[in-house]
């Protein structure tokens, strides 16, 4: 009886160890490529959320990182920052672009999320992201009032709106006085 128990534990342990070793190796091989993909996606997102930006440079101040969009002549055309928020299935990461002169949002795009496909995952759809464009810094970003929610995905919609608002406040505290 006891020997049977020991055998069960040992076999399961050996299989798990093998599994761990194989996965560690796979992770090591694929992770540089995965990080590179994420970086490229982030670069594309920055250009997308700052209208007129052709390139950008990273700026850090007081531990907050943001991106400065530059047009072809190297003039500042706007800024962008990363917003994070706890959604329904995990962390939602967004790139938010701001127009500092007009004091409004220039664009928003979702970088990554773990929301339910077909419901919360619709935060990636254009109509949802477009509604943040042109919102004033003073807007409340209240879902169902000034932000349309996705049917059946109020939590995901709220998470995005709240994430944008909270990160915007943090961003303005540090970079707000520059313009």
């Amino acid at each position: 009886m006891r020997r049977e128990y020991i055998r069960m534990v040992v076999v399961l342990m050996i299989i798990s160890l093998f599994s761990g070793a194989v996965l560690a190796q796979t992770y090591k091989v694929t992770i540089p490529k995965i990080n590179e993909n994420a970086l490229r996606k982030q670069e594309a997102a920055i250009i997308k959320v700052i209208p007129g930006a052709k390139s950008f440079k990273e700026v850090s101040k007081d531990g907050v990182t943001a991106f400065e969009g530059l047009d072809e002549n190297g003039n500042k055309v706007g800024m962008a920052f990363i917003a994070k928020s706890g959604g329904f299935g995990g962390i939602i990461t967004m790139m938010v672009g701001v127009d500092m002169e007009e004091k409004k949002l220039a664009g928003m795009t979702v970088l990554s999320h773990l929301e339910t496909p077909g419901l919360g995952a619709r935060i990636q759809e254009d109509w949802f992201q477009e509604q943040f464009k042109g919102k004033s810094f003073d807007d409340g970003f209240v879902v169902k009032e000034d932000v349309d929610a996705i049917t059946g995905a109020t939590i995901s919609s709220t998470a995005v709106a709240k994430g944008v608002k909270d990160s915007l406040e943090k961003f303005l505290q540090v970079f707000g006085g520059e313009y």
Binding site: E4, R7, M8, I15, S19, V22, T26, T30, K33, I34
Partner: peptide, 27 residues
């Protein structure tokens, strides 16, 4: 051992699923 066969199968399956997931994410 037949008593722990399902956990063993699941570990094997989960390993290959994770490999597929990582490879898809990378390439």
């Amino acid at each position: 051992p037949s008593k722990v066969r399902i956990p063993c199968y699941i570990v094997v399956i989960a390993t290959f699923v994770t490999i597929a997931d990582l490879v898809l994410a990378a390439y």
